[in-house]
Amino acid sequence: MQLKRHWQLYVFLIPAVVSMAVFHYGPMYGLILAFKDYKPYLGYLGSPWVGFKNFMRFFQSNRFTQVMSNTMILSAYSMIASFPLPIVLAVCLNYVPSVRLKKTVQNITYAPHFVSTVVVVSMLNIFFARDYGLVNNIREMLGLERILYMGSTTAFRHLYVWSGVWQGVGWSSVIYFSSLSAIDETLHDVAQVDGASIIQRIRYIDLPMLKPTIVTLLILRTGDLLSVGFDKVYLMQNSLNSPVSEVISTYTYSMGIGSQQYGYSVAIGMFESVVNLIMVLTVNQISKKLSETSVW
């Protein structure tokens, strides 16, 4: 009955469901490779089963602890640094009276999003080069010692995270802008009549209204805890910073794709997804309990 009455709605749903089924659920049968010693000529089903051998190999490899902790630290740092700033940016700009200034700032902060990763890393390489880089030139003028930033284990994470913040802050703030613009103007009017300061208006109107968006995004973000993007780390990696820059994705790339060990790579990828799933479920539950907002 319901189906018939609202059939138009279900028609709208079809493309999304089909694309999910084809592009997300369909390929999942490939996960059986994690439990197999995959040989292309034997096919998915024909390759011999090896149980958890691929997983054990990863857990027991020399690099497991290093790769895991690097991934978690980099990802957590990146989340802590990059999550609140777009909110701050959006809220602040929301109070800028001049539309012109607001638009200009918005455009300037969006722009870096469209710069490709390769270019960003080249820029880092040039600005932070030891012998002729801008940053080191400034350091020298201030009488400080030159530093090989790109090869420094301490600098790697900061460079990675803050260049990411620079690139993403404007773009990520879009969603908060839209939530803010959805707030009923009368609330602000009333608050102003009552003599609320801007800080108070942010505290008691904007943030509570943004809360569901923030929590939802945060939950989704924790689902990526183990997936640090591949390309940027890979491009920034060198032998000097590799003790902190070797993460799951780069390790999988060089071990799996690079030397055609498909079963092994799928196992690592699956491990990553399972951990991510557990994280999302946990955070979702916690948030349900604490704030009554949850993704599902």
Partner: peptide
């Protein structure tokens, strides 16, 4: 053997490169 060698070689070379480069620095 190829799989094992590529895994070992990656670890060995990474260790060598990182150590030697650090010494140079």
């Amino acid at each position: 053997q190829t799989d094992r060698v590529s895994e070992l070689l990656k670890d060995l070379n990474d260790c060598r490169n990182t150590t030697v480069d650090n010494w140079m620095l």
